[in-house]
């Protein structure tokens, strides 16, 4: 690790994700917890004012809210789940999208600069809801036996393949899906935050502790940090999109008879 050249430099690591408690008495209550709650407050306020008095010709805030809502409704819910049943799951998908998107974007908002979802507990909480939802929907739609039968023995496959396919499908649907869903979100936010820390803190260290050319080179590190910040914005929104999209896909898959 090239960072070892400086004597006082400690490379950023997972220790950077353990933040000091905000209140002395509450050991567990750190910044991300507050951010998760604040994000809910922001979203509730935002969409309360956007949807408070919906009008035929929308106000600017209503237009913005409707834009996000319409996008999730059309691209994520209706196109994937189908126009018959999507309204039932629209609140879930929409909440997931805006919750994850805002909490991810917290990672690059100045003074907050910490993605809530880089603490794996939060993705796990969301995944838990998704996992319960799509399994429950599948069992309700097709019956418990029918759900597992359709899952493990999809039609149109030579019978000897089932030996391999059935356990794979079971593991994939019941275990791998929630695991990857939460890990993908967590890993992207974790790595993205780490990336920004490396560039910004590294640049800071070069600027403060370095001499001569190294001081100048810190500009490159900061510039890269800024570029990466915009890249992170893209990744953060994309991850929110993918999480909501996969939720819709899993629900749609559980509802349809064939896989």
């Amino acid at each position: 690790m090239l960072a070892e050249e400086g004597e006082g430099y400690t490379p950023p690591g997972s220790g950077d994700f353990k933040l000091p408690p905000l209140v002395d008495n509450l050991e567990w209550f750190t910044k991300p917890y507050l951010m998760a709650l604040v994000s809910v407050g922001i979203l509730v306020a935002l969409f309360y004012f956007a949807a408070r008095r919906p009008q035929l010709v929308p106000s600017r805030l209503q237009f913005a809210g409707e834009g996000i809502y319409g996008f999730v409704r059309r691209d994520l819910a209706r196109d994937i789940i189908g126009s018959n049943d999507f309204l039932k799951f629209l609140p879930l998908i929409f909440s997931l999208f805006i919750f994850i998107a805002l909490n991810n974007v917290f990672g690059i908002i100045p003074f907050i600069q910490f993605p809530t979802m880089s603490l794996i507990g939060f993705p796990i909480a969301l995944t838990l809801i998704v996992w319960i939802t799509y399994n429950w929907v599948g069992m309700r739609r097709q019956g418990v036996v029918g759900y597992f039968k359709n899952m493990m023995f999809p039609p149109g496959v030579p019978s000897w393949v089932y030996i391999l396919l059935a356990p794979l499908e079971l593991v994939s649907t019941v275990f791998v899906r929630p695991l990857t869903l939460s890990l993908r979100l967590f890993a992207n936010m974790f790595a993205g935050h780490l990336l920004l820390i490396v560039f910004i803190l590294g640049g800071e260290y070069m600027l403060v502790e370095g001499e001569g050319v190294v001081k100048v080179l810190s500009i490159g590190a900061f510039a890269m940090g800024i570029v990466m910040t915009f890249f992170e914005l893209l990744v953060q929104l994309l991850q929110a999109y993918i999480f909501a999209l996969l939720t819709a896909l899993y629900i749609a898959g559980a509802m349809s008879e064939e896989h």
Binding site: V176, L179, T180, L245, L246, L249, A252
Partner: peptide
């Protein structure tokens, strides 16, 4: 597009699962 999108993203999720196992 609407037909391919779910298939593509399901495949993507499955393939990325391997990378995530590696991370774990």
């Amino acid at each position: 597009r609407s037909v391919l999108q779910p298939i593509a993203f399901l495949g993507f999720a499955l393939a990325e699962a391997l990378a995530l196992f590696g991370l774990v």
